[in-house]
Amino acid sequence: MGSGTEAHETTGAYVTAGESFTRDMNYLTTRITRDGAQGYPVEAGRYRLVVSRACPWAHRAIIVRRLLGLEQALPMGICGPTHDRRSWTFDLDPGGVDPVLGIARLQDAYFARVPGYERGITVPAIVEVSTGQVVTNDYAQLTLDLDVEWAAHHRAGAPDLYPEHLRGEIDEVALAIFRDVNNGVYRCGFAGSQEAYERAYVRLFDRLDRLTERLRDQRFLVGDTITEADVRLFTTLVRFDAVYHGHFKCNRSKLSEMPVLWAYARDLFQTPGFGDTVDFEHIKAHYYVVQTDLNPTQIVPSGPDLANWLTPHGRESLGGRPFGAGSPPGPPRAAETVPAAHTPAGSVASFGSDAD
């Protein structure tokens, strides 16, 4: 999958009256490779992956890093869920400063690489610790390189998320998902005209219907194991009812009203490395607080009820081996564990406490 097939999340997604939403297609495409051909060799501890749990594009990198067991080789910094119109910030860290990079705003790492950098300050971004410079924010290629180029640092039992014999099919499926679903929800939400919205809406649900048929009799999107394609669809599905259905007007059906996709999403959510990376509070705070074009009051909805993410999905009956010949990752590191109150388990506990 060439990096040109996708674009990245920017901090500035705004409604432009009369126009369709167009995603910024420009990013820093430098790669970190085994041979260091672009000047950046794979090296444990040399880089820092900067993410936000709120962002669906960064969420892909969080999941892939965890599934592959790259926590020690590629340490991670986590930005807060909200930001100003220019830069993600390290609100979660003591003093609001990343403890390794020593910066409060991610834009400082971009400026260190390109003085006066004018494009979106995006996550995920990989920063070289010694120079404080962003190496890449090309998230589409970034996870593929974690799959392939970082193989020497994968954990024992790591799954092959981008198997060579399936790459053509994975690329094809993932590109359709990006165009119509990952980016499609944004094209609905940030449409500047009724016509642009309706075009995006039709494309989104047409693709979801096609994915329903694809997944009706097979457990995963490509082959019988989890691949990059599943990671890329999951990060949109997990946000669908909490954000996209209402906030982005993607309201033909909730995910929980689409039985096949709902069971598929729950199957992945209950798989180690997926659900344990989801922070629903960060997700809602980001969309409803930052995107004032769509939600000028910045009121964050209390729902939806999250408990149903933990209900049985029944997808095991379709066979498949989530991790292939490998094994699931162990528990997340303490410093990277999503607060319980931000998860379905926490919502169940909170509900029980109130009921008492």
Results as ranks from 00 to 15, higher is better:
residue 81 P to V: 10
residue 83 H to D: 01
residue 85 R to S: 15
residue 85 R to A: 15
residue 87 S to N: 10
residue 88 W to H: 13
residue 88 W to K: 09
residue 89 T to F: 03
residue 90 F to L: 11
residue 90 F to E: 06
residue 91 D to K: 13
residue 91 D to E: 14
residue 92 L to T: 04
residue 92 L to S: 09
residue 94 P to G: 07
residue 98 D to R: 02
residue 98 D to K: 05
residue 102 G to F: 07
residue 102 G to M: 06
residue 104 A to Q: 12
residue 104 A to S: 15
residue 105 R to K: 14
residue 105 R to A: 02
residue 108 D to Y: 07
residue 110 Y to K: 01
residue 110 Y to Q: 01
residue 111 F to Y: 13
residue 112 A to W: 00
residue 113 R to L: 09
residue 113 R to D: 02
residue 116 G to F: 05
residue 116 G to T: 00
residue 116 G to H: 01
residue 120 G to W: 02
residue 121 I to W: 01
residue 122 T to M: 00
residue 124 P to A: 04
residue 125 A to W: 02
residue 126 I to T: 09
residue 131 T to C: 09
residue 131 T to H: 09
residue 134 V to A: 08
residue 135 V to F: 05
residue 136 T to F: 04
residue 136 T to N: 04
residue 137 N to Y: 01
residue 139 Y to Q: 05
residue 140 A to R: 14
residue 141 Q to K: 12
residue 142 L to V: 06
residue 143 T to L: 07
residue 144 L to N: 10
residue 145 D to G: 08
residue 145 D to P: 10
residue 146 L to A: 08
residue 147 D to Q: 10
residue 148 V to I: 15
residue 149 E to N: 03
residue 150 W to A: 01
residue 150 W to G: 03
residue 151 A to V: 12
residue 151 A to S: 15
residue 151 A to L: 04
residue 154 H to Y: 06
residue 154 H to I: 12
residue 154 H to D: 06
residue 155 R to Q: 05
residue 155 R to L: 08
residue 158 A to R: 04
residue 160 D to E: 15
residue 164 E to R: 14
residue 164 E to G: 08
residue 167 R to P: 11
residue 167 R to S: 11
residue 167 R to K: 12
residue 168 G to S: 14
residue 172 E to K: 13
residue 174 A to T: 14
residue 175 L to M: 10
residue 176 A to K: 12
residue 177 I to Q: 02
residue 179 R to P: 01
residue 180 D to E: 15
residue 181 V to H: 08
residue 181 V to R: 11
residue 184 G to Q: 09
residue 188 C to T: 04
residue 188 C to D: 04
residue 194 Q to A: 15
residue 197 Y to N: 00
residue 199 R to D: 10
residue 199 R to K: 13
residue 200 A to Y: 11
residue 201 Y to E: 08
residue 201 Y to V: 01
residue 201 Y to N: 11
residue 202 V to H: 13
residue 207 R to W: 00
residue 208 L to S: 07
residue 211 L to T: 03
residue 212 T to S: 15
residue 213 E to K: 11
residue 215 L to Q: 07
residue 215 L to T: 06
residue 215 L to G: 08
residue 216 R to S: 14
residue 218 Q to H: 13
residue 219 R to A: 11
residue 220 F to V: 13
residue 220 F to D: 07
residue 221 L to V: 08
residue 221 L to H: 11
